[in-house]
Design a protein around this nucleic acid. Structure first.
Lengths: 204, 204
DNA sequence: CAAGTTTCTGGACGCTATGTCTAGTAATGG
DNA sequence: CCATTACTAGACATAGCGTCCAGAAACTTG
């Protein structure tokens, strides 16, 4: 396996990564052939196999890099947070915008949805830990199972992010979607839709 | 193409559908070979091709059936609903429980996540229409873009459902998760985590 | 800038899985 | 019971994968 600190190696791998993302967006990961990816990357087919065992390995590499970078960006935002700031949320959306194509591939569930599952699980885990820490520190008494709250909150974020990244006409500015999402999550759907709190029947 | 009203045809197709779901759960859709599926279904490989063009066609068939049945179950629940009843939510969870394996395959994003995207998009569309109808009828003034609210709400449901179906140890009863999810969505995360509404800083 | 190392390359190879076809057998519906 | 229809095993051509090689090209180091 070629060494990473060689210019040719760096060029080749990054070209392959880019080609994979581009082609996945255009025709779907499952429909791609290795020779197609190599050709798009302007690299011999034999070279592909010098760097990656197969198509899946290349995809895994792309995803791993993405998740690692996301984690790096997210960590400081979560750290210096006491309450419900929208900062980790904004960081996620910003990171997605900076790597839009790659995110679209992952969020579409390309590559058997394994990457998407990874992303969701990682975020859910981290979110749950944050919730538990916050509850502990502030002596709160949760009314619901925090695992459900965490999963739901991550689900909201990912769903809206997925939709937002695909919107082509008149996209909502980042701060705006993130703000809406944060408010919705904090105050709930009744508040968001403008239901009069006094008159509405509470449940069932 | 064989006629559907023949007993042999019905048996063969349903065996193939079942085999696909089983094997997808065990080894992942992408890793399956056609001869494997036929063998599990106890059907000749040639017979497979008499009924489905390829593996993808079989998968599409399974998903289409699932979505059609879901729609059938959901429609009456949505119809006779005025406010925020949790009834469509419960119906979704019930349907998922009744077809647990198939749902797990779809929700894991097997088959390039296309089925999952379909499910999410269909639900989001329907939800958005319901929200708009409700706003119209009750003369509400939404504080947020309803597209975002709809996507987020569906995202919550799907994320929690995905997690819930995979939980093996001490699963939460259906009514309970559904209830939590409905309450969380209605009243928001601050309420759910027990934050004192008076003392908390509202935003940012 | 030269020497030595490493990567890139096209072409050839064997192999696995796909999708098609056929002729004979078994099951079904009427 | 008979005409129709579906199932089956096996053979076939083909596509795409992953491996290997030996020469050409590019890079790093001193």
């Amino acid at each position: 396996m070629p060494q990473v600190d060689d210019r040719r190696t760096r060029r080749t791998r990054s070209a392959l990564r880019r080609a994979l993302v581009e082609l996945s967006l255009e025709r779907g990961y499952a429909n791609l052939r290795v020779d197609e990816i190599s050709e798009r990357a302007d690299v011999g087919r034999a070279t592909f196999y010098a760097h990656f065992r197969d198509k899946q390995a290349l995809y895994d590499d792309v995803v791993a890099a993405l998740l690692a970078e996301l984690k790096e960006r997210l960590t400081p935002e979560v750290r210096e947070t006491g309450g419900f700031t929208g900062r980790p949320l904004v960081a996620l959306f910003q990171h997605a915008l900076d790597n839009r194509d790659a995110y679209r591939v992952v969020l579409r569930g390309d590559g058997d949805g394994r990457a998407l599952t990874r992303l969701r699980d990682d975020l859910s885990e981290a979110t749950l830990r944050t919730f538990e820490r916050r509850v502990e520190e502030q002596g709160l008494e949760p009314r619901l199972d925090l695992r459900v709250v965490a999963r739901a909150w991550v689900g909201e974020q990912v769903a809206v992010l997925t939709w937002w990244l695909e919107e082509e006409a008149a996209p909502i500015p980042l701060e705006e979607v993130a703000g809406m999402l944060a408010d919705l999550s904090r105050f709930g759907r009744m508040w968001a839709t403008g239901v009069d709190p006094t008159g509405a029947s509470s449940s069932e």
